[in-house]
C-alpha cells in the first residue's frame, strides 16, 4: 500500500458533524454483534416460535415443518433474510467500516495491518444481491399472513400489543425490502430510456421506479429500523412463550 508522498503533513482525525468519527462504526459493531449473538441463541436453542396466534419472524414460514424436520427449525428461515442483509448495499457500508476497517471512517487512515494485504475490493458474491431480494419477498409474504393471524383471537378480531408489534415489523420490513437498490434496478433503473418503448408516454415502470427511488433515499433508515423491529418482535414472542411476560389485549 504505497502512500502519496506528503512528508510533514500530519492529518488530524476528522470530525464529520458533531460526533467523533468512531461513534458510528462502534455503534454498528455493537448492534450487529448483539443481533447476531441473539439470533444464534434463538436459532440454536429454540425450536418453536409460536405463542397462540403470534408467530415469531424467526420461525415463519414453517419450512422445517414442511420438511418434517424438528431441530434447528429457525435456521431454515433465518438464512434467507441473513443473506439478503449481508449482500445489501447499505449494510456493506456499515460492515466494511465497522468490521474490516475499509475504512473505519471517512478520511481516517486504515490500520497498518492493511499495508501487507492487497486491497481487492468488495466480495463478488455480493453481486447476487438481486436473488436474495426474491428470498426476502418470499419470507415477507408469510410475515404479512402472520400479521393477519395476529389480529384473530379465539373470540374473533382483537388487538394485542403483540399484534401491533408484528404489524409494525411487517411494515418496516416491507419498506426495507422495497427500497432495495437491486429492486430499484430491476423495476426500471436498468433502462436508459423509459419513453422509448412507451411511445413518448410515461410507462407504469417509470412511476414504480420513481416511488422506489424515493423510498431508496431512506434505505439505511429502513435497514436499521427493520432489524430492531425483528429483534423486538422475536423477543416479545419468546418472552411470552417463556412465561416471563403476558400479552396485553388492547381491545
Amino acid at each position: 500500500m504505497a502512500q502519496t508522498s506528503q512528508p510533514g503533513v500530519n492529518h488530524p482525525k476528522p470530525r464529520f458533524g458533531k460526533m467523533p468519527y468512531w461513534v458510528e462504526p462502534v455503534f454498528t459493531l455493537i448492534a450487529f454483534s448483539g443481533f447476531v449473538i441473539y439470533a444464534l441463541w434463538e436459532v440454536l436453542f429454540h425450536n418453536t416460535g409460536t405463542y397462540h396466534n403470534y408467530v415469531s419472524p424467526f420461525f415463519s414460514p414453517d419450512i422445517a415443518g414442511w420438511l418434517g424436520v424438528h431441530i434447528l427449525t429457525a435456521l431454515y428461515v433465518a438464512w434467507m433474510p441473513f443473506v439478503f442483509r449481508f449482500s445489501c448495499y447499505y449494510y456493506r457500508k456499515e460492515y466494511y467500516r465497522a468490521f474490516t476497517f475499509h475504512p473505519f471512517g471517512c478520511a481516517v487512515p486504515e490500520p497498518k495491518s492493511h499495508q501487507t494485504r492487497p486491497y481487492k475490493g468488495e466480495w463478488k458474491i455480493n453481486n447476487l444481491h438481486r436473488y436474495t431480494w426474491f428470498l426476502a419477498v418470499f419470507v415477507l409474504i408469510f410475515l404479512w399472513k402472520d400479521v393477519v393471524q395476529a389480529f384473530i383471537f379465539p373470540n374473533g378480531f382483537g388487538v394485542g400489543v403483540g399484534s401491533l408489534i408484528l404489524l409494525v415489523n411487517a411494515i418496516l420490513l416491507t419498506g426495507y425490502t422495497f427500497s432495495c437498490h437491486a429492486w430499484r434496478n430491476m423495476i426500471g433503473g436498468r433502462k436508459d430510456c423509459f419513453s422509448c418503448t412507451a411511445h413518448g408516454k410515461k410507462p407504469v415502470s417509470y412511476g414504480i421506479w420513481r416511488r422506489v427511488s424515493a423510498l431508496n433515499v431512506f434505505h439505511g433508515w429502513w435497514a436499521w429500523a427493520s432489524m430492531f423491529s425483528v429483534w423486538i418482535a422475536d423477543l416479545y414472542v419468546r418472552l411470552l412463550i417463556m412465561g416471563v411476560i403476558h400479552d396485553v389485549r388492547l381491545f
Binding site: K93, Y96, R97, C106, E122
Partner: peptide, 13 residues
C-alpha cells in the same frame, strides 16, 4: 468499479 465497497465517503464530502 468492483474496488468500490460503497462506504459512501464520497457522497458525504
Amino acid at each position: 468499479i468492483g474496488l468500490c465497497n460503497v462506504t459512501k465517503c464520497c457522497t458525504s464530502v
